[in-house]
Nucleic acid binder design. Structure first.
Lengths: 210, 210
DNA sequence: GTGGCTATTGACCAAACGGTCAATTTAAGA
DNA sequence: TCTTAAATTGACCGTTTGGTCAATAGCCAC
């Protein structure tokens, strides 16, 4: 056991945060302890506190780390290339629903952070900022959508529609997490398409993805 | 401090569960301790364990208790009296969105229970059952809705639509909890109405509530 | 009253927690 | 090589946790 401090500060933080992520996914943030993280990283628990000061900061930095690596709501080329806003929206929605269904662990983590946010100011503002970023990405597409066909959603604003879009994804994530066997992603997406798919005068179109 | 066991078993459980609810709302389930509950109820912490055995069972029974007193998704007379399924759906949706916005504490609690459900089998099945009950209530209205106008949501099933409806409410609850100042219930409901409000041939109708 | 049953309590316990600290090891600079 | 600053550790501490248990206080039948 002669190996020690080779690792240059930044990499150590990364290593510990990765271990913290594993522990949080396995046991939840509620049961995340400094000692468990240290054991997962293969270091002493004093070292974790040396690099992060308090446990509270470790948890907070873990939130930042997860949000960074998750690269939430990145509008890919596949989405942006659609000329019509409706198709872009469908593609983005399908992308996000599919992505979250492939990362169920993240949903659990975010659930706990959302709950924590009601008490810790720092966490709440961080989450609120991310939520705002998330909604903002939809807002542009929604504004285009209303612009293309003002009669499509009478009385609805881009703000309202983007909030609804976020609800779709959040609600899908939660239901898939709580009762995976009772929740079918395809059926869900089909319902969303049917709900959005009233063309202003055209018919028989559909979004191609893959 | 001479007062003791007057309370007849059932009432004691109720009293303790009420105290547990207050503690859970104030500090979260993560920080709920047997001693904190006992202090809130004004009894010794040994008595709490005498009535509930383990802390785990206290937390589980609290979930049942909360779900009972919340009377989730009760289809009121005001909703049922609408002859058209579309109006019933709008009314029910508005009722649920409004109700949850008046009980933000419950949302936080359920968030934590959802996260806990990923690890505790008992909690997960209990939540899944409640979610199923919730979706079931929407499914009937959704089936009627499709029956009234099969072309309204092409390709969508009652199952898919009810899942979407649940998403609306869950997503609304989460967003209102995470960033209350950035979330406007009226704008959200207006967007939902605009999204659902494509009459098959009629126009200018709206749902009256209150 | 009085005896017995049970709800209730305070004291106690082992474990785990977050956090501190002096002591050691390591890498790098002189 | 010697020095120096930083990284790392094991030992330790005070607190809190869930849980147990013998003792006790209240209530009912008699």
């Amino acid at each position: 056991m002669g190996k020690r401090k080779r690792i240059p500060e930044e990499a150590r933080r990364e290593q510990i945060l990765g271990a913290a992520f594993d522990v949080a996914c396995r046991a939840g943030i509620g049961r995340l302890t400094v000692r468990a993280v240290a054991a997962e990283a293969g270091v002493s628990h004093a070292l974790v506190l040396f690099h992060f000061g308090r446990k509270e900061r470790l948890v907070h930095d873990l939130l930042d780390w997860v949000l960074d690596i998750t690269s939430v709501l990145h509008i890919s080329e596949d989405v942006a290339r659609f000329p019509r806003a409706r198709d872009r929206f469908h593609a983005l929605l399908e992308q996000e629903v599919t992505r979250q269904s492939h990362q169920p662990e993240h949903t659990r983590l975010f659930l706990e952070y959302w709950a924590l946010g009601t008490q810790h100011e720092e966490i709440r503002t961080r989450i609120a900022a991310e939520l705002e970023r998330y909604r903002e990405a939809f807002r542009g597409i929604m504004a285009d959508l209303i612009g293309e066909d003002p009669l499509l959603f009478p009385g609805a604003t881009a703000d309202g529609l983007s909030a609804v879009a976020v609800s779709w994804i959040q609600g899908c994530a939660v239901q898939a997490l709580v009762a995976p066997d009772r929740f079918d992603t395809d059926t869900y997406l089909a319902a969303l398409r049917g709900m959005m798919g009233r063309p202003g005068g055209e018919a028989g179109h559909h979004v191609e993805t893959s």
